[in-house]
């Protein structure tokens, strides 16, 4: 057995470079989003033709866009938007997917079969495809893109939870609990849930990153967050038309997305090491 198993939780956190770096990057994003709720250096919304395409300065750290909006402010508000979408979308996946997975593992039989076959079908529909279907009916918009990404997350969680939970259902302590007459519902809460928690947290972190990517892609296509609300994907879309004029505008939002996704992926890797050293694939 790996010697790091015996280390305390905090010591393992400190030892995992992925966890530290990913944690700091994710923390930075959260701070940006929180600060943007009540303060931004300029305005992310006010159109001012006189101030368009300003170069970086002390008032506009990264300059302004073709409508004179402050780019730093837009990026900060965009962070808030990305995080909000990802939180809701992952929560939908968590709430429904984890429940379905636990149910499948607890009931087995046709319940499991039904849930798993349904996940099979939905695997053919990545977030963008389900978003396309949904926006085709309900029209483009932030809420609809959240719904689409959330729907995509459901089978991912359901499969993972069902697989892990099934393995735990065969363990001795669950057998003992069943022998002592506890019902499946109680066993699920008392024994299964605590044992799959760390895997769920790791997966949620990674899906959080995927949700941010998907939201940006949808907004880029014009199917997600609608103007005037700033979003990274939308900024990139608007900047693409100005590639010859002001290429930097296409750089910033991309860096923001990549940073967020990179930080979250690292955090996910780190959490894997920290929460359950046995899961760690690190060598």
């Amino acid at each position: 057995m790996n010697s790091s198993t015996s280390l305390s939780f905090l010591a393992r956190c400190r030892r995992s470079r992925s966890f530290m770096v990913g944690g700091v990057m994710t923390g930075f994003l959260l701070v940006c989003a929180a600060v943007s709720l009540f303060w931004t250096p300029g305005s992310a919304y006010d159109i001012s033709i006189a101030n368009r395409f300003l170069p970086p300065s002390s008032t506009h750290w990264l300059g302004t866009d073709q409508f004179g909006r402050d780019i730093v402010s837009m990026l900060m508000t965009g962070t808030q938007n990305s995080i909000a979408v990802a939180v809701v979308a992952v929560s939908i996946g968590l709430a429904v997917g984890v429940s379905l997975g636990l149910l499948a593992a607890a009931r087995r039989g046709w319940t499991e079969e039904l849930i798993m076959r349904f996940s099979d079908f939905s695997f053919a529909f990545p977030a963008i495809l389900s978003a396309i279907m949904i926006t085709a009916i309900l029209g483009p918009g932030g809420v609809n893109s959240i719904l689409a990404i959330g729907l995509y997350n459901i089978p991912v969680f359901a499969r993972l939870v069902r697989g892990t939970a099934n393995a735990i259902w065969t363990r001795e302590f669950v057998m003992a609990a069943r022998a002592s007459g506890k019902d499946r519902f109680r066993i699920t809460f008392e024994h299964i849930m605590p044992n799959i928690l760390s895997i769920i947290i790791v997966q949620a972190t990674i899906l959080f990153a995927i949700a941010i990517l998907a939201e940006a892609a949808l907004s880029y296509l014009g199917l997600g967050t609608q103007p005037p609300h700033p979003s990274w994907g939308r900024m990139l879309n608007e900047a693409q038309a100005l590639m010859f004029l002001d290429p930097w505008q296409a750089i910033y939002p991309g860096i923001a997305i990549a940073t967020a996704v990179f930080g979250l992926n690292l955090l996910g890797d780190g959490l894997r090491d920290v929460l359950d050293p046995r899961l760690s694939r690190k060598r």
């Binding site: 990153a209 990517l213 940006a216 892609a217 880029y220 990139l236 900047a239 693409q240 590639m243 290429p247 296409a250 750089i251 939002p253 991309g254 997305i257 990549a258 940073t259 996704v261 990179f262 992926n265 690292l266």
Partner: peptide, 18 residues
């Protein structure tokens, strides 16, 4: 590769065009 995973493909597309 960790970086490659994090870069959105449509942004990479824009960078490649530029």
């Amino acid at each position: 590769s960790q970086l490659g995973i994090s870069i959105p493909n449509f942004w990479l597309a824009v960078l490649l065009i530029m």
